[in-house]
Design a protein around this nucleic acid. Structure first.
Lengths: 236, 236
DNA sequence: CGACTGGTTGAGTGGTCTCAAGTCCTGTGG
DNA sequence: CCACAGGACTTGAGACCACTCAACCAGTCG
């Protein structure tokens, strides 16, 4: 992690689609004045499970995984984040220690505002609580949907679902239509699906044999999204 | 379901611990004026997955399960509710169809306020958005914790965890210290744990043999909570 | 009294996990 | 440039947890 010169919220690409989309000039100014910006190298930790949140993280650029660590050290990824997403607000609002750890999946730049600023913004801007409520509702819906998948689907079905979720979250490569715009290790995929790494490898290999995806190392192409949806048993 | 005379929010036992705890006199009056009250018999549906929410439900008295229905009709219970809890706010705030069905676990009385009133209250009372944010944060944390359990624990471990969750949520019988204050069918327990009914029966029977619980039909006594916690691998 | 629902028990199957033995990469230092 | 170490990835074999299917019992209701 390394401090870098302040980025300007005003021109931040991600912000326009974020929970801070409709901050007015004054508030933006205050936010700009208060925050600090940092870069994180791939693999570096943004915050640790168990620590108290001191403020809010906003991703300017990059990809982050948020995971809980169980007995035996096995990770369960509970959220994925990208440019424009905020991090750590769950524990900040609930005023409790982080229940998960956030780690950079690739080199990322992330801004930080302290708790005080955050609470002040929450009070001055009436749209902000509303936006956060809606964000929380979405997250909760996603979590409950995935909970159901965990409980009722096979690993094969969940893997198909996860690949579709990755496409929805991170989209496809700018120039290559079918290429997922994120590269995860087999282990990360397993920790997302909730299974063993070996099982992911075997099933991905099956998908490749069935011409549903193509694999070149961590680069994944979706060749047959329709079939993938059929396997995942999702409708959208 | 049957309409009953209006209950008074002012004297509602549950409200004092609820998200509406700090409504002022004016707002309470408006709420009282607007709402309607109904009784639901055990097994009756409060709202259906897929329908649009028309307002907010507040449980005056009773117990409710909220579940999602998967292919093959298998239910996954995603939430349990009791006196003082609000229902259906997730979809109401998110302005989307219900993603789950709510059904009475026992005879219950539930009040209903329409969307308009709800939105008005949300704007007039600054504490309300805050309370809902905190509620959503809790729910999200619980959902993520349970997601991890689903992914990493065995059915036996999850069953132990669920029994402890039931105790935490509904408490114990007024007169019998160890007796769970809720009676669920084996199938409901299975739909909570995310397993087959037969598996729940076998494992509960194991717990009984090990003197961890006692069973008389649906009445469950926790004889050895320490051992239960050890099995569930939880800390609190 | 049958029909029905909820609970229980048994047998067999198979999906997934674990363990173990490699192979393939990639970065590093000589 | 090569050798090497370490991590990521792959493949195989065996074990077992949990599911499904099926039969049966107990209580309840019309």
């Amino acid at each position: 992690m390394k401090r870098i010169p302040k980025l300007d919220c005003e021109t931040c690409e991600g912000r326009t689609h974020s929970v801070f989309a409709d901050l007015c000039g004054n508030e933006l100014g205050a936010l700009n004045h208060n925050k600090v910006c940092n870069t994180y190298k791939k693999g570096q930790i943004v915050f640790y499970e168990g620590n108290m949140p001191m403020g809010l993280y906003c991703i300017n650029q990059g990809k982050i995984k948020v995971f809980k660590t169980g007995r035996g050290g096995k990770e369960q990824i509970v959220r994925l984040a990208k440019d424009g997403d905020v991090l750590g607000y769950r524990s900040l609002i609930g005023n409790e220690p982080y229940t998960a750890t956030a780690e950079a999946l690739e080199d990322s730049t992330i801004c930080f505002t302290d708790r005080k600023m955050f609470e002040q913004l929450l009070q001055t801007d009436p749209a902000l609580p509303k936006n956060f409520m809606e964000l929380l509702c979405q997250e909760l819906r996603d979590a409950e949907n995935f909970l159901q998948s965990m409980a009722q689907k096979t690993v094969r079905e969940r893997l198909a679902e996860v690949i579709l979720i990755l496409r929805k979250k991170y989209g496809t490569h700018p120039t290559q239509e079918n290429r997922l715009n994120v590269e995860l290790s087999r282990e990360d995929i397993a920790n997302l699906v909730g299974t063993a790494t070996e099982t992911v490898i075997r099933l991905l290999s099956d998908f490749k044999d069935e011409k549903i995806v193509n694999l070149e190392g961590r680069v994944l192409h979706i060749l047959n999204p329709v079939k993938l949806m059929a396997i995942a048993k999702v409708d959208d």
